[in-house]
Amino acid sequence: MFDTALTANDLIFLAKGAGMTLIVTGISVLLGTILGILFGVFRYQVGPWWAAPLTFVLDIFRSIPLLIQLVLANAFVTTVLGFRISGFTVACGVLSLYTSAYCAEIVRGGIESVPTTLRRAARSLGMTWGQDMRSIVLPLATRVALPSWIGLALGVMKDSALVFIVQVVELLKSTQILITRLQEPLFLLMICGLFYFVISFPVARLGGYLERRWSND
């Protein structure tokens, strides 16, 4: 359609960036969700008073901009503690905790949405706490929490662009590198957006699919 200096190699370079975005997001959402479930169940179970220290820490993760968290965590781990770990590890670590802080809220809200009367009914049938959690709370809370969780996963994917600050070359950073070289910002950003869309779309659709499957009618 118009002249471009973009080569197949450049496209592969972009695809690698997209792959990095996908890996960082995937690891962070996975670990963040597991931690978020643990934190959320803990907070619900012990009540606001005992959970206060954890709530406070999670609130810190939610209120400080991710970029600052990444820089500080990287400086702390490499300079203060003297660990020789990669920017990739720092990025995944910080992003996982950041995800878990939001996920814990979603999980707690999901658990709270399950009527206590249902849980009493389950326990009255002789089901243990764990059986009630698995067979009643988990499926019902998941239905309620899913839209927010999908939103979180998509948000983390976009936020993962910030990990360039710890030298991780993900999709947006790859695009910037090419922009500097080729001087075709609009065209390259369009391709970059297309990559993001291709990664995000299945996740967004998954939500719709599950909601339809669960609508019990």
Binding site: P115, T117, L118, R120, A121, A122, S124, L125, G126, M127, Q131, S135, I136, P139, L140, R143, W214, N216
Partner: peptide, 25 residues
């Protein structure tokens, strides 16, 4: 025990509601 508030497990069919605790417990 049966309570005043209806408390069917909404994500399970009627027969699954009645099966669940039999299988688990």
């Amino acid at each position: 025990i049966v309570f005043q508030q209806w408390n069917a497990f909404p994500h399970l069919t009627v027969v699954e509601n009645v099966m669940l605790a039999q299988v688990k417990v």
